[in-house]
Design a protein around this nucleic acid. Structure first.
Lengths: 159, 159
DNA sequence: GATTTTTTTTAGAATTATTCTAAATAATCC
DNA sequence: GGATTATTTAGAATAATTCTAAAAAAAATC
């Protein structure tokens, strides 16, 4: 990462005690997952694991990075998303055959997918009850169950 | 389509009365959907809508075409899959962020997805009971509900 | 702190899946 | 059979993702 200007901005901002504590916690999680603590990883972790749950694609995360005045290559973003997923920090959600979505909420849950906006909304697992699951075919074992409810914008009612 | 040899084979095979009846039925469906009846469309329709339900990607369908000794361009296959879907003959199933799957079973149902084999198995809608669906967020309307149960090969039990 | 080692990041190339395009071909209508 | 319209085609283009070699950064060692 070459942009010293942006690096200094980050370092200044990170002198804040709360920020330093967050950095310490994120660093701990990264090390626990066998990942080196690097500036790009910390920056991505902050964007992903702050202010509640998020759904991102590589592209939307890249835009958030740029909006935050940072500079991280797209390749690093793809790389990091996959490493965070393998570390168990993220879950992949498949709702579009041409984009990979990643969810910071790793507990079992389901989703609304708003097709007009390519946007996901979490549905808590308890809000959907699935009974009467079919028998798993022989020789196979269940990995995970996803319920995707595709919705679109309702047409405005006629005046 | 230039391969006269293959074309003659098809035409010879299609003299069979059952085949001619099938061709007439498929032609009727194509016309009803506003699609011209062409050799490639008939050939793809036969592969898709014969012998029960199928799940295909463009690539797997292309291979079936070649295995049947036919020659249809990959662009035509993509084109036709989308036209059949828009005509209501196929449903798209999203289980992988890098491939589009198409299902000839257009009635409401769900799927097992065998991740080791990239293969789908239908689950009849009645085999899964979803109760307690959450309220649709304001301004949105439901399009469709998909349940995907991801499974993989079970490890062989230790001897 | 400097050096060495290892890992990561990077920019751009490469790959893969899908879509686009202009020209040729085929289907339909007359 | 000719005219018109739609489709097919091969290959280019696009988009999303992965790969690569070199540079940079992080960690370990001294």
């Amino acid at each position: 990462m070459r942009t010293m200007y942006r690096k200094k901005m980050m370092q200044a901002k990170n002198k804040d005690p709360a920020a330093q504590d967050q950095k310490a916690q994120l660093s701990k999680r990264l090390r626990a997952a066998g990942l080196r603590v690097t500036e790009p990883r910390l920056a991505l972790a902050r964007l992903l694991f702050t202010d509640g749950n998020h759904h991102v694609t590589a592209e939307t995360l890249h835009k958030q990075v740029q909006a935050a005045g940072l500079s991280i290559s797209l390749a690093t973003i793809y790389n990091s998303l996959h490493q965070f997923m393998e570390a168990g920090f993220l879950r992949q959600i498949v709702v579009d055959a041409n984009h990979s979505y990643f969810d910071t909420n790793i507990s079992p849950h389901h989703h609304f997918f708003i097709t007009d906006e390519n946007r996901l909304i979490d549905i808590p697992a308890d809000d959907i009850t699935i009974t009467n699951l079919p028998a798993i075919p022989d020789g196979l074992e269940m990995k995970r169950v996803d319920v995707i409810i595709r919705v679109n914008n309702a047409p405005a009612p006629a005046e």
